[in-house]
């Protein structure tokens, strides 16, 4: 079973998207761990480690994505979790999204994204190696 941590870094409390995605992934048969709000990058890395996550979905709408997402990526690498799939969702301008993908984010989902699109993406990328 694919294990996904849905994480809310930063100070904003916009959790509608995170909760909808968490439910959609659970309904699609994944094991979902939702961190709750106001997580620091370290806390998110720690959760990914503890929960043996296949993927981390970062939901952020505070505009601080260019500060916080790279820290989470670095933290994961430092813990030997460089192979954990990282996806980001939120109000992310295309320039920033491109930069995040360059840094190692597998996909950036912006407003209007279909939950089934996200489910398919995770299934595809986290499929167990035969």
């Amino acid at each position: 079973m694919i294990r996904v941590v849905i994480a809310k870094p930063g100070l904003d409390g916009h959790d509608r998207g995170a909760k909808i995605i968490a439910r959609a992934l659970r309904d699609a048969g994944m094991e979902v761990i939702y961190t709750g709000l106001h997580q620091t990058p370290d806390q998110i890395v720690e959760t990914a480690l503890q929960e043996d996550a296949d993927a981390v979905g970062i939901s952020i709408l505070s505009g601080a994505h260019m500060t916080l997402v790279p820290r989470i990526l670095e933290g994961l690498k430092a813990q030997g979790l460089g192979d954990v799939l990282v996806v980001v969702g939120g109000t992310i301008p295309e320039d920033d999204a491109a930069e995040l993908r360059e840094l190692g984010v597998a996909a950036v989902f912006t407003p209007g994204a279909h939950t089934s699109e996200i489910v398919e993406f995770l299934r595809d990328k986290c499929a167990p190696v035969a």
């Binding site: 904003d12 505070s62 505009g63 601080a64 260019m66």
Partner: peptide
């Protein structure tokens, strides 16, 4: 949080 707090990093003046 004041702007110089560590939790404020990246969020000052953004929203």
């Amino acid at each position: 949080y004041d702007s110089d707090h560590e939790r404020s990093l990246g969020e000052v003046g953004r929203e």
